[in-house]
Simulated assay, not measured.
Amino acid sequence: MKQALIVIDMQEIFFNYPQNHLLHNELVVSNINELIKQARDKQIQVIFIQHTSQDEQHLMSEGKEDWKLHKNLHVSSNDKIIQKSKFDSFYQTELLDYLKANEIEQLIFAGAQTEFCLDTTIRAALSLGYQHNLLYKGTHSTINGAALQAGDIIHHHEATWNNRFLTVMDEIKL
């Protein structure tokens, strides 16, 4: 089954301000980089999704420092970078066409934020026919919310997703 690793919104905004720091942010980057290394070793396409605000004044507008992919991610010129402006990485982007053109059948998800863009994209992927997707524990994160702490949000979503929307894996091994 041909796979692609999709890394969502791992951008500088989550590292530049203490109030936006993802839970275990540096460990998550390290784990994502391990996934990237394994993907490249197995010739699995790596796709970075980059949230891009349409408001030029917003911190996440194209070209701003906070908009850039995190400097410690192992991004290469062979990777595909797709910009999005909504929670759903498929909505009004080239992602679905790119996956179809490259005959990708299984998606491996990582990134931020667990309950927003990652969750929305995981659910959309299932609805679009991607039925056997994967997510590895420790490769996604979020910040504390008004109702729940980041760790509780992560735990809740992994429990909800597992064996419904994708398979949650413990060991980072492709």
Score class of each variant (00 low, 15 high):
residue 70 H to Q: 10
residue 162 N to Y: 08
residue 157 H to R: 04
residue 111 G to I: 01
residue 46 V to K: 04
residue 120 T to S: 11
residue 161 W to C: 00
residue 122 I to N: 00
residue 126 L to A: 02
residue 84 K to A: 01
residue 138 G to R: 05
residue 82 I to N: 02
residue 43 Q to Y: 07
residue 31 N to E: 05
residue 16 N to F: 12
residue 48 F to C: 01
residue 141 S to K: 01
residue 116 F to K: 12
residue 13 I to T: 13
residue 159 A to H: 10
residue 125 A to I: 10
residue 11 Q to E: 09
residue 42 K to L: 08
residue 108 I to L: 15
residue 107 L to H: 03
residue 45 Q to N: 11
residue 64 K to T: 03
residue 157 H to I: 05
residue 97 D to S: 15
residue 122 I to W: 02
residue 104 I to V: 14
residue 160 T to Y: 03
residue 45 Q to K: 14
residue 151 G to Q: 09
residue 69 L to V: 03
residue 109 F to V: 03
residue 12 E to P: 13
residue 19 Q to H: 13
residue 94 E to H: 12
residue 41 D to R: 09
residue 68 K to A: 07
residue 35 L to N: 01
residue 66 D to Q: 11
residue 132 H to G: 10
residue 50 Q to T: 10
residue 142 T to P: 13
residue 97 D to M: 11
residue 98 Y to K: 04
residue 111 G to F: 00
residue 131 Q to N: 11
residue 149 Q to K: 15
residue 81 I to M: 11
residue 124 A to W: 03
residue 52 T to D: 03
residue 54 Q to H: 10
residue 64 K to E: 09
residue 25 N to E: 15
residue 81 I to Q: 09
residue 11 Q to G: 03
residue 51 H to T: 07
residue 36 I to P: 15
residue 91 Y to I: 14
residue 48 F to E: 01
residue 87 F to Q: 09
residue 151 G to R: 07
residue 77 S to H: 12
residue 17 Y to S: 04
residue 133 N to P: 10
residue 110 A to M: 04
residue 79 D to E: 01
residue 86 K to Q: 04
residue 19 Q to A: 09
residue 30 S to A: 11
residue 138 G to T: 00
residue 49 I to R: 00
residue 14 F to H: 12
residue 163 N to R: 08
residue 83 Q to V: 04
residue 83 Q to I: 02
residue 49 I to E: 01
residue 58 H to T: 05
residue 41 D to H: 07
residue 81 I to H: 10
residue 2 K to W: 05
residue 153 I to F: 08
residue 174 L to G: 08
residue 58 H to I: 06
residue 90 F to K: 05
residue 63 G to C: 03
residue 155 H to M: 09
residue 171 E to G: 08
residue 93 T to H: 03
residue 7 V to N: 00
residue 110 A to F: 02
residue 37 K to L: 05
residue 32 I to A: 04
residue 84 K to H: 10
residue 93 T to G: 06
residue 79 D to G: 06
residue 157 H to C: 08
residue 41 D to F: 12
residue 74 H to R: 02
residue 165 F to M: 06
residue 124 A to E: 07
residue 64 K to I: 03
residue 170 D to K: 09
residue 93 T to C: 07
residue 114 T to P: 12
residue 99 L to F: 14
residue 14 F to W: 09
residue 148 L to F: 13
residue 18 P to Y: 11
residue 148 L to P: 07
residue 27 L to I: 05
residue 35 L to P: 09
residue 154 I to C: 05
residue 166 L to H: 02
residue 147 A to C: 10
residue 24 H to I: 00
residue 39 A to R: 08
residue 64 K to N: 02
residue 116 F to V: 15
residue 155 H to I: 06
residue 170 D to Y: 05
residue 106 Q to Y: 14
residue 109 F to S: 11
residue 149 Q to R: 14
residue 103 E to L: 05
